[in-house]
């Protein structure tokens, strides 16, 4: 009874919006204010330097016309499929190369060679081979995610304590059981780190790929806005990019990181929220 009362009083005392969130809101408001003041001071045409009001109007216009929701959805789908593909392939190849000397010698130099070739170099070729659109973008972005996941998985596999593997083998575990119960859990913090790094690179790559090889998406909105001198739409695209990344980071990547590497004490939670 007393515990329940204490919990209730704690809930009552907890403010709806925390101090950190208030600071975040204040930061955004300050940036908007400084932007508006700079528009008044510099006094350039709206197509050259749009004011927050113009950008907000463009946001409403794009939403009413159904363009923005569809572009955001297109970008989100491309991103999700690409990251999942890159994660799966990076993990598979990382384990293969990490666990087998034969595959390491066979694939190691080729993978190292391709690591140096950025996805931007592939996009023109992919456009010729596959054409504009979904598949080209997914391949290019999966390529971006593949390498950090692969190299981090490799590091994770190579740093597994051999005493654990030996102990499992002494107890009669099969190779599969050693993989599932020792190697993958030990390598998981590295895999998650690779995933987080790859997911960040992928988001930047996505926007770039959409500028070159798509007829929709946030990247295309920015590119199209620039070519038609609708700079307010360009800024809407940029803001949407930031918002999408914040949502992905806050709702997916950071909690996954919390659930794995921070939770297991491998890295310390950074200050602030």
């Amino acid at each position: 009874m007393t515990n329940a009362t204490n919990d209730l009083s704690k809930m009552r005392r907890r403010p709806m919006i925390s101090t950190a969130q208030w600071r975040g809101v204040l930061g955004v408001a300050s940036v908007l204010f400084a932007w508006q003041v700079s528009v008044w001071v510099i006094d350039l045409p709206a197509y050259f330097y749009p004011a927050p009001r113009d950008v907000f109007a463009a946001f409403i216009d794009l939403t009413q016309k159904g363009i923005l929701p569809e572009y955001v959805a297109d970008s989100a789908v491309r991103y999700s499929v690409s990251v999942a593909t890159g994660l799966g392939l990076g993990l598979a190849f990382g384990l293969l190369i990490g666990l087998s000397r034969f595959w390491s010698r066979l694939l190691g130099p080729i993978i190292n060679f391709f690591y140096a070739i950025v996805e931007v170099a592939w996009i023109p070729l992919l456009v010729i081979w596959i054409g504009y659109g979904f598949n080209t973008i997914v391949i290019a972005i999966a390529y971006v995610v593949f390498f950090p996941v692969l190299y981090n998985t490799l590091t994770g596999v190579q740093t597994v304590q051999h005493v654990l593997i030996n102990a499992m083998q002494t107890l009669g575990a099969t190779r599969w059981q050693v993989l599932v119960t020792v190697i993958i859990p030990s390598a998981l913090p590295n895999i998650i780190t690779g995933f987080r790094v790859g997911a960040g690179f992928a988001f930047r790559g996505l926007i770039f790929a959409e500028m070159i090889a798509a007829g929709s998406g946030i990247g295309f909105l920015i590119f199209d806005g620039a070519t038609t001198r609708q700079t307010d739409r360009v800024v809407v695209g940029m803001i949407m990019m930031g918002v999408m990344w914040l949502l992905i980071d806050r709702l997916l990547l950071r909690p996954v990181e919390q659930a794995t590497i921070v939770r297991w004490g491998l890295v310390r939670n950074q200050g602030g929220n």
Binding site: L251, L252, P255, V256, Q258, A259, T260, R263, W264
Partner: peptide
């Protein structure tokens, strides 16, 4: 063993 249930709540609820 970490409590998977509470740690994965946010991504799971998001999905």
């Amino acid at each position: 063993i970490p409590s998977i249930h509470s740690a994965w709540r946010t991504p799971l609820m998001t999905l």
